[in-house]
Structures are given as structure tokens and as C-alpha cells.
Design a protein around this nucleic acid. Structure first.
Lengths: 342, 342
DNA sequence: ATGAAAGCGCTAACAC
DNA sequence: GTGTTAGCGCTTTCAT
């Protein structure tokens, strides 16, 4: 059985030119007489030549591939489409730039070393990282790899160094609470998310921005899950039987809260108005009543992350984190989507 | 600025041995005196040596990477966690075998050529492919790349050639319908999925297996979405006001059907019992009442796909689809999960 | 504009 | 056991 993959050499022979010429043609064909170029192209076609990436990377030191690192698959990531949409945006942008997407799913701290090794191992040109927990070491490990990186979601409270893309969690939360207030609600509660995630913290901050004097008993802690939402809602109802509105840190939480509200005979939105966050459609449209919520354009965020990284790669070349070439972070806008719950 | 990445050569010099020895140590160290091996390891450590994959692939012709090809991101894939869970299973298995996951998201037919090129381009050792539509050319393109491949979901009605992993759609459907019958239901309807997907066809076949004489008017066509489920349910109700049970092709469809049932004042499960398929928890647990459904172990299916492929790679070496080395397909079992709707 | 030649960093015979 | 050596397939000066 003959080797199924012809080499540059074979194409050169077939076309009656040198390897160098074939290489030029294959890489855009700048500075090659068109008559020759044509001949080469024909040979490429006839032989079904496909360049060997490994050989190419060996000399160019580029891989046209970026890693996408996603941690904490145990939780939210795998029960809402957030992650999938984000990936889709990333994929679109990378594809447009002929870059490949290498997915690194991190199951736990045991995987950190592996990821660090991979990133340092020169397989990819850059990394897109979804960091979630505040005290996580992953961001540091990744920064240690010295690979150009863009984070998805604000990495931590102080983090200035690495660029990231996040939606305006705080502003979106403010909008949600203001909406509730504009509806005439006076006892507006908040079910927060897990406060080791910046998104949850920011949403809580947004709530407080609008209601700085709110009764602390009106804030309960959830965990971004429906079960957490139920628990928090029960607690809130117990301590604040008079509440007339709830801003939930995400849609899943709101769904749980809604169930408890029904259970307790509260009508939504008549007795209690509810607003969620995310606009994750399969949930927000399925709830009873359909959920008013704060939408973020997740796919666009993914696309932006990829764009930021690719731009850094183009420019940076070697020294990707020299300050002036470092791309700035991006905060994407949110929008209130009114359905029936508020 | 000095090159930040030391080579084998550098390590060899630093350790006072030959490149070959370093290479041996780095690749497991078989047949190297331990005293030397230690010295090498120390050198590796001190220099922070990381092997250059491109160089290695160039000679070994292995990449320790497999592509995961996912088509039709427009629809279902990105609104249910199915895909994420599958990926997670795949990732776990690949990671365990030190293989990387390269994700190829296919947005439309325009992308087919790109995918074909990539797969043929020798970037990866094999491919895991989620093919969904019956008349799709993607499977053929992929087979054309001559890359060892495992499909997720039965690729098409006749497909014998390529191994795949799928759940027992037909058997699961039978179980669902039998359960409904065991509840004493006599007018059992079915809302089918899009029949250009084998899973939808198989589930319909399962329904018919149990109810070969069922009134054809009891079968309506959905599309795996809640909206489709609503539409189909209305239609069914119009033609069969006496129906007392519905087997929906998936959970999303069931959620839509449930809403219409409520709208029409039918009590579930008293008047009409409902069973779904998939057990996608965020949906099945959120419906009112919580959905009885057929569960498939999605993560396990992903894991199996990867395992099958890796096994083929180990054995096959070059000729991966020689008949005797081809791994057989796997059908995974389903299980009825009883909640409140039936 | 084109070709010749020198590697990129690694593995795998093969010799010692 | 260990070192020597010959490439893997490609890009890229450097001549011409």
C-alpha cells in the first residue's frame, strides 16, 4: 500500500518545479509566475496534496489553534446552554480565521497540572479560559504558561492583568431592580448566586446600588440552581411575608423561586413580581408565567473573546503581554426582556 | 531574549548524555540505567523542558488528538445539555488516554469542505462525529477522509460500515408506551420528532411495536422543540378529544404538550398521562407536573464513543477500517424514570 | 521569479 | 545500555 499522503516533494516533481515554488504557491502564491502557479495548483489537485501541519508548525512555530479551557463541568456549565452558546461564538470566530479549537475540560484540581503542561507545551497559540471561582489557582497556572490568554467572565475581584470579556452584570442587575421598582414594588428581595463567582457578586452589587437601604433580610443566598432558588425563596417568604418582588441571580434560580411562590399561593406577577438573569430561553420561556429576565448576548461574548485573542496573536507575535499590545477587556451590554413575570 | 524553550539537545548537553537517551527517558525511560535516567530527569526539570509536539508528530505520525465534529448547532444541540454531557464523557475518556479533543462545530453545508480538509489534513488520529440528518453528506465526506471514526447516534437507516454509539431509542420507546398501557390507558398518542433523524424514527417505531394497530390519527409530528410539541398537541386534541395518554419523542416536546394540556383543562396525569424521552433534568424536573421520561446515559455514551475510537486506533494502526479490526457499534440501555406525569 | 540547501526538534534504526 | 545518524515534511534565507 502506497503512502496515501503526497508530500511537497511529490507535488514539485509532478509539476516540474522545486519544492520552494510549491510551498510559495500553497501559501498564497505571492511572487510566482501565474503560469507556474497554475501548474502547481493542478498538481496539488491531481495528487490530492494536503500540507502536513506538524512539519509546518515545526518551522513556523505557529499552530493555528487555540485552547478553550472550561472548568467546573460539574455544575452550571453542563446544565445550561450558556457554555454551548459561548463555544459556538468562539468557534465561528476561530473558523473565520482558520484557527482550530482545542477543548480542555477541567474536571477538578487534579487536572490543573495537565492543563498547565498542555498550555506550556506549545500545542496552541493562545488560550480562552472560563474561570469561575474567586480563589481558584487555575488563572495563575495559566498565566504561568505565558500564553496569550483571554478570560471569559471577570477572573477575580482585583484582576487587572489579563483581558476578559464579561457582560455588564452589575448594570443588568440595576436595570432589573429598577424595573421592579418602576412597577411600584416596595419590598424587593434578591436571591444571590454563589458569591465565590464574580458574576454573582456583581449582580448583588447591582441590586444594592439601586436599593442601598434595603432590609438585609431581603437578600438570600442561592447557588444558581433551581433547588437553591426554592430554598432561598422559602427562607425569604418565612422572614418577609410581605415581599412583593424578587430579583433572582439567574433564570434557574428564578424557576425554583416561582415554584415555591405558587406553592404558597402567591400569584405572579400580581402578588409577587419576579425577574431573572441570563435569558436562557429553554428555561425562561418554559416557566409559569414566562420569565421577565435580563438578557446577555452569550454567543457574541464568545465571539469577542476569540477576536480579542486573535488580535493579540497577530500583533504580539512573541511578547504577547507587553502592556501596549495587550488587548483591553470588554464589557458587553445587557437588556431587559419583558415576559409575564414582572 | 533567549529562546524560552529548551530542546532535547539542550537537555542532553546539560545532562551529559546523547539526545537519544534523553528521548528514551522522556518517553517512558525503558532500557536506560536508572542513574542516567535520574540525571536526565533532573536536567529536564532544571531547564523546564517540554517536548515539542510538532517535531514529535512529524516523525511518529501520531497526534494524540481526536476531532469531535458536531453539526447543526442551530437547533437542539445548543438548547439542551445533551451535547455538553456527551462532550464531557468524551473528554474524560480522552484525557485518561492523554489524547486531546479538537472541537469542530459545523454551522452549515458551507463548512463541510473545511471539515473534510481538516480531517484529511492529518491533524488528528481519529474523529468522533455527531451526525443527525438522514440525507446528510457529512458522514460520506468524513468516511472519505479515511480517518478512523465513530458516530454518535445511528448515522442512517442502512449504515453498516461505521461504528456508532446510540441509546436504545426503540426499546426505550417501547418501555414508555408499555408503561402507559400498564396504567390502563387506551388511547395513547405519540408526538414524533423530526423524521429525518434516526432517533425520532426509532422512537416512532418503538411506539408502533407496542401499538401496531393504533389509530394513525394518534400520531402527530413534532420537531423536538416545545413549540412543536404545543402544535402537535393541539392537533392531537382536535382530532382525538378522547386521548388519555401521550408519549412525546423528547422532553422538550413533552413540555410543550403539557402546557397545551393545561390550557385545555386536562389534568395530568389523571386525564392524560404523559411520558417524555431523554430525561434532560433541567426540563423534566421543571415541568408541571414533573415529567416521567425515558432516561439515557448521555455521558456514558460519550465515553463509549471515545473508548471505541481509541481502541481502534491502538489496533488499527494504519488500516483502521479493515473489517476485523473495526470496533462494533454499541447500543446503550435506557431506563424509565417515574415522576408525576405518568 | 525560481531553485538549492539548511535546518525546525524529534524518534528510530542501527551500530557499538 | 548508549550514542550516531538519518530522516519526518515543511519554510526560508540565500544565490542565481
Amino acid at each position: 500500500m502506497p503512502d496515501p499522503r503526497p508530500t511537497l516533494e511529490a507535488v514539485a516533481a509532478h509539476a516540474g518545479v522545486s519544492r520552494a515554488t510549491v510551498s510559495r504557491v500553497v501559501n498564497g502564491g505571492a511572487g510566482v509566475r501565474s503560469s507556474l502557479a497554475e501548474k502547481v495548483l493542478r498538481a496539488v489537485d491531481e495528487l490530492g496534496y494536503v500540507p502536513n501541519q506538524a512539519a509546518r508548525s515545526l518551522v513556523t512555530r505557529r499552530h493555528d489553534a487555540v485552547a478553550v479551557v472550561i472548568a467546573e463541568p460539574e455544575t452550571r456549565v453542563f446544565t445550561d446552554p450558556f457554555f454551548a452558546q459561548q463555544l459556538r461564538g468562539i468557534s465561528k470566530e476561530l473558523t473565520a480565521q482558520d484557527s482550530q479549537l482545542v477543548l480542555l475540560l477541567v474536571e477538578g484540581k487534579d487536572d490543573y497540572a495537565r492543563v498547565g503542561r498542555y498550555l506550556a507545551g506549545g500545542h496552541v497559540d493562545g488560550a480562552l479560559v472560563f474561570s469561575v471561582h474567586l480563589d481558584d489557582e487555575l488563572p495563575d497556572i495559566i498565566r504561568g504558561s505565558a500564553l496569550p490568554t483571554v478570560f471569559g467572565g471577570r477572573p477575580d475581584r482585583g484582576g487587572r492583568r489579563t483581558p476578559y470579556v464579561d457582560c455588564d452584570n452589575r448594570g443588568g442587575a440595576r436595570e432589573a431592580v429598577r424595573h421592579l421598582r418602576s412597577l411600584g414594588r416596595e419590598r424587593i428581595a434578591h436571591i444571590a448566586g454563589p458569591l465565590d463567582q464574580t458574576s454573582a457578586v456583581d449582580r448583588l452589587d447591582g441590586y444594592r446600588d439601586v436599593l442601598p437601604e434595603a432590609d438585609p433580610a431581603l437578600v438570600a443566598r442561592g447557588d444558581f440552581t433551581p433547588a437553591g432558588g426554592e430554598r432561598a425563596m422559602r427562607e425569604l417568604l418565612a422572614h418577609n411575608p410581605d415581599l412583593d418582588a424578587v430579583f433572582a441571580a439567574n433564570d434557574l434560580t428564578a424557576a425554583g423561586a416561582l415554584r415555591v411562590l405558587h406553592e404558597h399561593g402567591r400569584r405572579v406577577p400580581e402578588d409577587v413580581a419576579v425577574v431573572g438573569f441570563d435569558d436562557m430561553e429553554p428555561v425562561a420561556e418554559q416557566t409559569n408565567p414566562p420569565l421577565t429576565t435580563v438578557r446577555q448576548d452569550i454567543e457574541e461574548m464568545g465571539r469577542l473573546m476569540a477576536r480579542l485573542l486573535l488580535r493579540a496573536l497577530e500583533r504580539g507575535g512573541d511578547q504577547a503581554d507587553s502592556l501596549d499590545t495587550a488587548p483591553a477587556s470588554v464589557i458587553t451590554p445587557t437588556a431587559l426582556v419583558r415576559r409575564a413575570s414582572a
